Simulated scan of single mutants.
Amino acid sequence: MIRIVSLLLVGLLLSCDEDVLPKPNSFLRLEYEKATYKSFDDKEYPFSFQYSKDAKVIEKKKYWLDIYYPNLNATLVLSYMHVKGNLMFLLKDAEKLTFKHMIKADDIQAVPYENTQSKVYGKIFEVYGNAATQIQFHATDSVSNFMTGALYFYAKPNYDSIMPAVHYLKKDIVRLMETIEWKKEEYF
Rank of each mutant, 00 (worst) to 15 (best):
L7W: 03
L90I: 05
K38G: 12
K92F: 10
Y187C: 09
A132C: 00
K61L: 00
E114N: 08
S26E: 13
A74M: 04
D107V: 02
Y159L: 08
D106G: 13
A165W: 14
I162N: 11
K61N: 02
L76C: 07
E44G: 04
L12Y: 14
I173L: 15
N71F: 06
L12H: 13
F40P: 03
R175G: 06
K104T: 11
D19A: 12
M88P: 00
L65R: 06
E44C: 06
Y63G: 09
H167L: 15
K84E: 15
C16F: 14
A35Q: 11
T36P: 00
I180E: 14
K43Q: 15
V83N: 04
V5K: 09
Y69L: 08
P157H: 09
L7G: 02
E178A: 09
Y45M: 01
G149S: 12
G11E: 02
N86M: 08
D106H: 04
E126P: 01
M163R: 11
A132N: 02
V5Y: 10
Y69C: 01
L28I: 13
T140M: 05
T179Y: 07
S48D: 08
I4C: 01
L91P: 00
Y159Q: 07
M102S: 14
Y154S: 03
D141R: 02
S79R: 08
K34S: 09
F47V: 02
K100F: 15
N130R: 05
I124P: 01
M177F: 05
L12A: 15
E44S: 15
E126W: 14
E126C: 10
V120E: 07
E31D: 14
